[in-house]
């Protein structure tokens, strides 16, 4: 994944919570208060801020995979890191090990809306993961297999998120296709905390939303919402 920060304004213009986070929560039934892709606001050196949407970095040398005592988290052949919530013992060492804070824990029973009643759990579709297990962004593997791009990228109004393939060396934000390697070099892409040697598969193009017309001095974004929360609570009360 490539995230072009020049095009990300944290959805300030939309007067809404970041669309990527919202789409993720809506489509993947991400339980509150998890934000598998989270829009951090970071200070810029010259004053003002930038927004950094942060999904799981899908590291090639993933600390979480290295420390898991039971092999409940692993690299798929495509390179994403998945979690088997039917094997996870809930020791949370992976959360301690993740330098990007991109892992979340089901402290209680994760809430889920009634429309998930017939969804079957699999490591590729984490709805129905039991409490006491770890969850995270998985790059929507079911969509990827069907030849689609993840929900967050589909939802981005500014085309700031690109979905790429290192084998084909192509990437797309749903509007145009670019040559991945060329795009990365040409726009001086970097990776978060590159010096740690985790070798993330998520790249960032530096910027502060200028391509979306954002003034870096304009701070703050709309807080994240879990729109189906109430429904889930009512459903849980009615004894699912």
């Amino acid at each position: 994944m490539v995230i072009d920060l020049r095009a990300c304004d944290g959805c300030q213009d939309e007067q809404a919570p970041p669309r990527c986070t919202a789409a993720c929560i809506q489509s993947r039934y991400v339980p509150e208060p998890m934000e598998w892709i989270e829009c951090y606001e970071k200070e810029l050196p010259g004053g003002g801020t930038q927004f950094i949407p942060t999904p799981c970095q899908q590291c090639q040398n993933a600390p979480c995979v290295n420390v898991c005592p039971v092999g409940a988290t692993w690299h798929t052949p495509e390179g994403t890191v998945l979690i088997d919530q039917e094997r996870c013992i809930g020791c949370r060492l992976c959360m301690a090990a993740c330098p990007y804070d991109r892992r979340f824990f089901n402290w209680g029973d994760p809430p889920r809306p009634p429309e998930t009643a017939f969804v079957r759990y699999s490591p590729e579709n984490q709805v129905g993961a039991p409490r006491g297990t770890v969850m995270k962004c998985d790059f929507c593997p079911e969509l990827a297999r069907a030849g689609w791009i993840p929900y967050c990228i589909q939802a981005c109004p500014h085309g700031a998120l690109y979905w790429g393939d290192l084998e084909e060396d192509l990437a797309t934000n749903g509007k145009e296709v670019v040559v991945l390697s060329r795009f990365l070099s040409e726009h001086h892409a970097y990776r978060l905390k590159e010096e740690l040697g985790t070798r993330p598969r998520v790249y960032y193009v530096p910027g502060h939303g200028q391509n979306a017309g954002r003034d870096p001095q304009r701070r703050g974004r709309h807080p994240t919402r879990w729109p189906w929360k109430g429904k889930a609570r009512r459903w849980a009360r009615s004894g699912r």
Binding site: N66, V67, C68, P69, V70, G71, A72, R87, C88, I89, G90, C91, R92, L93, F105, N106, P130, R131, G132, T133, V134
Partner: peptide, 25 residues
């Protein structure tokens, strides 16, 4: 650490699937 586990019922996974690479093991 057992009290701290999220899934104490799966403690046997440590024996079934234990990985040498993990500090927990």
């Amino acid at each position: 650490p057992l009290v701290d586990l999220g899934r104490p019922d799966r403690i046997l996974n440590l024996l079934l699937y234990g990985r040498w690479q993990s500090p927990v093991v």
